[in-house]
């Protein structure tokens, strides 16, 4: 259909885009160059917030580093696991639907406080995990007492929610034409070889998509560290989103917190930009004739 009527249907969204995205987006950038405590008028301070973040604030740098660590640990592991399970599910087995729903359930409930409570609870020194480890003769682990194990707890939670990536992989796997596999078999390729030379290249657009989505999510993770480890011990799981939350809604330093959020935003932007720029090298698009 032609015509300006289209705008009419887009009007609510356009208004919302200005009010809920464009305005706050610009506003937070402006705020990041000020000191603002909600009571006194905002005071322009130039780059001072940014300079302070990077030169004076060890906690900030630590949180940024913890966020990177968390992202680097969760995203590849989660995607690899999702792909592995999707690959197994893709064979015609009985009861596939049952498994699929079982694996997907954690993703649905993922962000719920109840799940965070469950996690906090089963990783207690006397919790289920240690009880089970005890059955195998493994000594109790004080999960929340050392930086490495505390990080592991929130990383496990994220990997546990591999279901939605898995579903997307599964849908992509089912689109791969069967004759490609048959051709590979006739050529005498082994299963493993077929996986790496046929399946993986055809999946790269899906891998790329999942990768970007999971990265953007992981960089902003809040519920896990906030509710489970509370940033500890020694702020080893104090992720950037917690830092930003604390400075904004606990200490009411809106300018400083906005600056921190912009640093995080730029980090996310840089990582995704690099991925997009290199994507032409490793992402296979069938309709371009392939590469």
């Amino acid at each position: 259909m032609k015509g300006r009527k289209g705008y009419l249907y887009l009007l609510p969204w356009l208004m919302g885009l200005v009010l809920f995205t464009i305005y706050p987006f610009i506003s937070s950038l402006v705020l990041s160059f000020t000191n603002y405590d909600l009571i006194n008028p905002a005071k322009f301070v130039g780059f001072q917030n940014y300079i302070h973040l990077f030169t004076q604030d060890e906690v900030f740098l630590k949180s940024l580093f913890a966020t990177l660590k968390y992202t680097v640990l969760t995203v590849p592991l989660q995607l690899a696991f999702a792909l592995f399970i999707a690959f197994i599910l893709n064979f015609k087995l009985k009861g596939i639907k049952l498994f699929r729903s079982a694996y997907y359930l954690p993703s649905i409930l993922g962000g719920n406080v109840a799940i965070a409570i469950l996690w906090r609870f089963i990783f207690r020194p006397d919790g289920l995990i240690n009880q089970v480890l005890g059955l195998f003769g493994i000594e109790k682990v004080a999960w929340f007492s050392t930086p490495a194990t505390a990080m592991a707890v929130i990383v496990f939670l994220k990997i546990w929610q591999f279901g939605s990536s898995m579903l997307i992989f599964l849908a992509a796997l089912q689109e791969i034409p069967r004759d490609l596999y048959e051709a590979a078999e006739i050529d005498g390729a082994t299963k493993i070889r077929t996986f790496f030379t046929v399946t993986i290249p055809l999946l790269t657009p899906t891998i790329f998509f999942n990768l970007i989505m999971q990265l953007v999510n992981a960089f902003q993770e809040f519920n896990g560290p906030y509710l489970i480890t509370q940033g500890g011990p020694l702020q080893s799981t104090y992720l950037s989103s917690m830092f930003i939350y604390d400075y904004a809604f606990k200490y009411y330093q809106m300018g400083y917190s906005s600056a921190a959020s912009w640093v995080l935003f730029v980090v996310i932007l840089l990582v995704t930009a690099v991925l997009f720029m290199t994507s032409s090298k490793w992402v296979y698009y069938a309709d371009e004739g392939g590469k």
């Binding site: 902003q220 930003i244 996310i268």
Partner: peptide, 9 residues
């Protein structure tokens, strides 16, 4: 777009 940038404003 990361929601984290729009939250404070």
């Amino acid at each position: 777009l990361p929601q984290v940038v729009t939250r404070i404003p």
